[in-house]
Design a binder for these strands. Structure first.
Lengths: 225, 225
DNA sequence: CAGCGTCAAGAGCAGTGCTCTCCATTTTGT
DNA sequence: ACAAAATGGAGAGCACTGCTCTTGACGCTG
């Protein structure tokens, strides 16, 4: 009830945090595939079974780490946006920050944008934090009232409906053409980061800094910035 | 020596194929994470240790499956291209075929375009078959002599060099601007498929057929088709 | 202070990848 | 044609995993 919890609750909260921290540390070393509950417990000086008082399963621990990772990359993107000034500069900042976070936390990135690890679950808890980067991009774009793209292909009624309901969800009424292009840019951002981190650019654009830079500008054009 | 191998060699080749087939079958059911050598051996009526006469490790088996998957999706893309006719129609066919293969073999797709599973290896054997889809796209584009994009951002010397050497590798001399846009389209294709298969589009563009259709056309514009 | 809920610990189960030894069979060289 | 060499299957076994269940101790609360 009150702000000061019982000793037990505080201990529990702290241990939960320590477990996640240690798991994150091991994740960075051995990847999601090699994350072992027993090893985490061992490192914390406890027995593996005790860990199940805090996380009912290994998958659940991973899910928590997934949510945290979405929030971390989302926060990185949001903080990078100065919030005012030249829209293209802001766009650039968001893209660079997202890529920088991914390169600094490759295993956490793989956890959220790689293949879904457990039994194909995309837990409901993840869809809100997962949208933060996209929302940061949308904020930059919509505050700059983009010009309509020169060439606009016809759009099916179904897609137009999806785009409009998505615009409503973002709390801004933007033309469907702009929304779909934003989705394209969002896809492109993570597609390029994934390709870079997962080794698909090896042999073509490697290192990828110059290309990513170029791509950032191209996609700013694409969305009408 | 001769075309007819010894009985042992034929048996070995056949068993190797059977092992891969069974592994692929299990892959489709339980995913890469759950693929078990013992289960494969069990299903084939042999003992797990015998399997190691054919594949030195689980990772090596997975690598073979990865190469096969690259070839399969590459072949799907190549076969979809009629080889002549309207370039945008050809472009469309390649994109649709690639997506269709991915949706039909989600676990195999995750194997090659998801997070690298083992210890971060991108085995050298994979980079040639990995390029087949990109090459199919390049073929369509370069045979249609695309018009230079209207707006061309300046390009760093490093990127221009990468693009030109890549054009050489493709056996065609295309302007660097076209090559970088092709890389963008290639990235976008697999970025969108990954987002769809890995659940990132849930809540925004889901189902994704209409959007993918739209995107295909947008990216055809993007590369100058 | 008694009783209830919480939690660490340990043993144990079923499963994994992988190695090693042993043996039968097949291939090969003389 | 026969012995030597290679191959490949079977089985036992190691070290590890996620997870469950029971036991006993501790802290919180009525």
């Amino acid at each position: 009830m009150t702000a000061t919890k019982t000793a037990r609750e505080r201990a529990r909260a702290e241990l939960t945090r320590e477990i996640k921290d240690e798991a994150r540390r091991q994740l960075a070393e051995v990847g999601a595939h090699g994350l072992s509950l027993r090893a985490v417990a061992r490192e914390l000086g406890m027995v593996s079974s005790a860990l199940y008082r805090y996380f009912p399963s290994r998958d659940r621990l991973l899910t928590e780490l997934i949510i945290d990772a979405y929030d971390a990359v989302g926060e990185a993107a949001e903080k990078a946006d100065p919030g005012k000034g030249d829209p293209r500069t802001r766009w650039h900042a968001v893209w660079q920050a997202t890529r920088a976070w991914a390169k600094a936390h490759p295993h956490e990135y793989a956890l959220i944008y790689g293949s879904p690890i457990p039994g194909y679950r995309a837990p409901q808890d993840t869809i809100v934090p997962a949208a933060r980067v996209a929302q940061a991009m949308a904020k930059v774009l919509l505050e700059a009232d983009p010009h309509e793209p020169a060439v606009t292909a016809p759009m099916s009624a179904e897609l137009r409906g999806q785009a409009e309901s998505l615009a409503r969800a973002l709390g801004a009424h933007a033309p469907a053409e702009v929304v779909t292009r934003l989705i394209g840019a969002w896809t492109q951002l993570f597609g390029a980061i994934s390709f870079e981190l997962f080794g698909q650019y090896v042999g073509s654009v490697d290192p990828s800094d110059a290309y990513f830079e170029h791509l950032t500008g191209q996609m700013a054009d694409f969305v009408g910035l």
